[in-house]
């Protein structure tokens, strides 16, 4: 599954969240581009105790995933995971990127 990123028209700086001013060059024009939502786990944590709105999901994993195109994106997984595992975007749920292991 693909995910969209915001790219600065001036310097090419990319970010997952939309921006008004480029933190890199201060330009104000951006375009959206799609990226393949597949990458490697940079780090993770297993959340046993969550805030009340996520309690029904515990235990779950929050992961930060590095895309080969250079972006870094935070998401959630149900499966056990380790650093460097290859994962892919499987769904968007209420604003969250949901990843699953590949293969």
């Amino acid at each position: 599954m693909k995910l969209s990123v915001h790219v600065c028209e001036e310097c090419g700086h990319t970010s997952i969240p939309a921006r008004l001013i480029c933190p890199s060059c201060r330009a104000v024009d951006f375009r959206e581009e799609e990226r393949e939502g597949k990458g490697t786990v940079y780090t993770f944590t297993k959340i046993n105790i969550s805030s009340v709105e996520f309690k029904h999901l515990t235990p779950y994993y929050v992961v930060i995933v590095d895309l080969p195109t250079g972006e870094r994106v935070t998401g959630r997984m149900a499966e056990e995971v380790q650093i460097n595992d290859v994962v892919e975007l499987a769904a968007m749920e209420q604003g969250a990127y949901i990843f699953k292991k590949c293969g």
């Binding site: 969240p17 993770f44 805030s51 935070t74 209420q94 604003g95 969250a96």
Partner: peptide, 21 residues
């Protein structure tokens, strides 16, 4: 507003991410 909070990241979760890395 962030996708991180929507993913269920919490304060202790953030520091858990740091510790594993």
């Amino acid at each position: 507003d962030s996708n991180e909070k929507a993913a269920g990241l919490s304060f202790p979760g953030f520091f858990g991410l740091l510790a594993n890395r």
